[in-house]
Write a protein that binds this DNA or RNA. Structure first.
Length: 632
RNA sequence: GCCAUCGUAGCUUAGUUCGGCAGAGCGGCUGACUUGUAAUCAGCAGGUCGAGGGUUCAAAUCCCUCCGAUGGCUCCA
């Protein structure tokens, strides 16, 4: 509803002729006049339909607000269609206008001019600064929005789960969880798994400390908050962008190697698209919503939409299956509740590698899921996160699915290689019947999922994705949803948290070598060595090493300290001695004493640590004196 | 979203209890020093005290609203 409020000396009207939508009126309503009043020109709009009472309440509120400020006791309600181009139906309009009249009558003298008549009117506006005011009365489409996005969210709230631990040999131990007590399994030597159970199903200790990665991501000039955006949308500095880019490169390369076809799809979708609308109802998340010039759209929370709409239009035969599609979503968007956001761990905009496989039947889906689990294990290990030591497996399924496919779950747990948490749902709240996750546990027992794969038993049909089977009949595929590494930001979160854990246990914290922003730093003792160092750096860059030079006028001690604080793996001090001997004095991070070696040996050490992982050039100027500071 | 805590220079922070001149260290800049494996010395610049409103002779300090951050609840990649 749109309203235009005018503080008037008077408003006077005479009814002339009825329009097709005119309300029936008494003779006495055919003309009217009010002096020293607030004139309320009103247009009821389409979006007010079905929300009559709320619109009235809100409108009354707004009008009273203004009336109080202007200190008037008379109100003229005047229907005025020209305020809006999206008018509601006349019956609703009359209902709302009458409602406003009734409600306002309690406190004001109210006159309502008739709806749907051509009228002549004379109006005198007082002309002071507050005398003209237009307002839009919008009732949040709570009902509607909730309907669209939250069925799965709501279903999840009432979900009943039973919990268990499955051994590698397939034995399932049912857990009895009461607060901080877990019975039914001997967690000896497996404290992390117990922490994980408590995090998922029990109560954990109160009073958590700030996640260490938050300070680290800023101190190392990787990532920072961006107050100019929405919460959970971060800025990446050059070093952070490089690290993230390398991870993106690697995960994408490995996923393509597995046989996935990389595609690209839009980040926004029509909220009124029938298949998408139903899909939203089966995914427990909130979306960013926005208006384009022609449509109401939402921002994707994963790559499903684009890939499914694409496969729906494809011609598929059983011979093509499984069909694997991959996209690195930069970004996926989820409007997580404000209090759920933390640093790199939980964001509203994040980069997720998302790989779907269309499988012709459940048997093929099971086999494919196993292949993909091995891909994920290999990818995560190679990145520098130890799957067995650092992560915990959970398999979640509906009770029904588990009973009929227990063998699959046993194989997944066996393949992972250590006891896993099992969650069984009493009903299927979302589109998947089974999912597994690799979860990282921080020292305070907070779990974050990285890798996940799901068996989707609904959306082949929902999106009308079809393949022609051997018997010539059309069938809907089972769809797997894999993120082979988990969100890239969350991978960075895990790496930083792990570094903090190293530090706490007395080790020197490190980045995986292939991700270290600077891999080798040269520290010349004085400016005299700069020319020589320059040659060494040129030489090293030939074989793809990220090298830089500390050419500041700090003391050697200070330069070393600086390099240590940047967690640089190799630091080479160059003075007259080294130039003389042609050797290098190399400090290796984590070793007590520096080592003397030739350039060749340093190159070999580099190659060994780089281990064939992707490479990007150093993202900052070679000379430290040329570098701008991003954070303190 | 709810509850709690927090927001002072680029960074870390003192000052907020009980209203009364906004201070320091690091970093930056300038100069000196040209240095041998985790902090060289001196000087200078740098502040809408998160934003807006209110109370007051006077607000970083008290009150209100908003924004942002952290932790917990809930939830996820």
């Amino acid at each position: 509803m749109k309203i235009l409020l005018i503080h008037s000396d008077y408003l006077k009207y005479q009814v002339k002729k009825e329009t097709p939508v005119a309300e029936e009126i008494e003779e006495e309503m055919k003309e009217g006049e009010m002096k020293e009043c607030l004139s309320v020109f009103t247009a009821v709009e389409e979006r007010d339909e079905n929300k009559v009472e709320k619109v009235i309440a809100k409108g009354v509120n707004d009008i009273k607000d203004t009336a109080e400020k202007l200190d008037v006791d008379k109100i003229m309600i005047y229907p005025y269609a020209h305020l809006s181009s999206e008018l509601g139906d006349p019956a609703t309009a009359v209902e709302i206008l009458k409602g406003l009249e009734d409600e306002l009558s309690h406190d004001y003298k109210v006159h309502r001019s008739p709806f749907g008549w051509y009228k002549a009117f004379q109006l005198s506006c007082k002309g002071h600064p507050l005398s003209e005011l237009s307002k839009e009365v919008v009732v949040e489409e709570e009902g509607e929005k909730e309907e669209v996005v939250s069925k799965a969210l709501k279903a999840e709230e009432t979900l009943q789960s039973t919990w268990g631990i499955m051994d590698v040999d397939g034995t399932l131990h049912e857990l009895d969880i009461d607060g901080k007590d877990v019975e039914g399994y001997d967690f000896k030597g497996n404290g992390k798994l117990k922490d994980f159970v408590l995090y998922e199903a029990g109560e954990k200790e109160k009073g958590g400390a700030e996640s260490p990665h938050i300070e680290l991501m800023r101190r190392h000039e990787l990532v920072d908050y961006e107050e100019g955006s929405d919460p959970g949308n971060l800025r990446f500095y050059p070093k952070g962008r490089m690290m993230k880019g390398l991870l993106e490169d690697y995960v994408s390369e490995r996923t393509r190697d597995y046989g996935a076809m990389e595609i690209e799809s839009p980040i926004m979708y029509d909220i009124d698209h029938p298949a998408l609308k139903k899909h939203l109802n089966r995914f427990p998340a909130r979306q960013y919503r926005m208006e384009t010039p022609d449509k109401n759209v939402f921002l994707r929370f994963a790559a499903c939409f684009g890939q499914f709409l694409m496969t729906r239009d494809m011609t598929l035969s059983y011979r093509n299956m499984p069909v694997r599609l991959y996209e690195l979503t930069r970004y996926s968007f989820r409007v997580e509740q404000r209090g759920e956001l933390t640093g790199l761990r939980r964001l509203r905009a994040f980069t997720m590698p998302d790989c779907h496989a269309m499988c012709k039947d459940l048997e093929q889906a099971k086999d494919e899921m196993m292949t993909r689990m091995n891909l994920a294990i290999s990818v995560v290990n190679d990145i520098g996160i130890n799957v067995l030591e650092d992560l915990e497996l959970v398999v979640r399924a509906t009770q029904d699915y588990f009973e009929n496919n227990r063998e699959q779950v046993e194989k997944l747990v066996d393949n992972y290689g250590k006891p896993a948490l099992i969650e069984l749902w009493d009903e299927q709240y979302s589109y998947f019947a089974l999912k597994y996750e690799f979860n990282f546990l921080d020292p305070l027992g907070r779990a974050s999922a990285l890798v996940t794969d799901q068996v989707d038993v609904e959306q082949g049909e929902r999106y009308d994705i079809k393949y022609i089977d051997e018997d010539g009949k059309e069938r809907h595929p089972y769809i797997l949803h894999l993120s082979p590494s988990g969100a890239i930001e969350r991978v960075m979160f895990t790496l930083l948290e792990r570094a903090a854990m190293q530090e706490n246990s007395g080790e020197k914290p490190t980045f995986p070598y292939w991700l270290a922003p600077t891999q080798i730093r040269f520290v010349p003792i004085s400016d005299d060595q700069l020319e020589h160092v320059e040659e060494l750096v040129d030489d090293l860059e030939e074989i793809n090493v990220r090298v830089d030079i500390d050419d500041t006028d700090r003391t050697v001690g200070k330069k070393i300290r600086q390099a240590e604080q940047e967690w640089i793996p190799f630091v080479a001090v160059i003075g007259p001695k080294e130039i003389e001997s042609g050797k290098l004095s190399v400090r290796i991070r984590g070793e007590e004493k520096e080592r003397e070696m030739g350039l060749k040996e340093l190159k070999e050490l580099h190659e060994k640590k780089q281990n064939g992982m992707p490479f990007r050039d150093i993202p900052l100027p070679r000379y430290l004196t040329k570098r701008a500071i991003f954070v303190g």
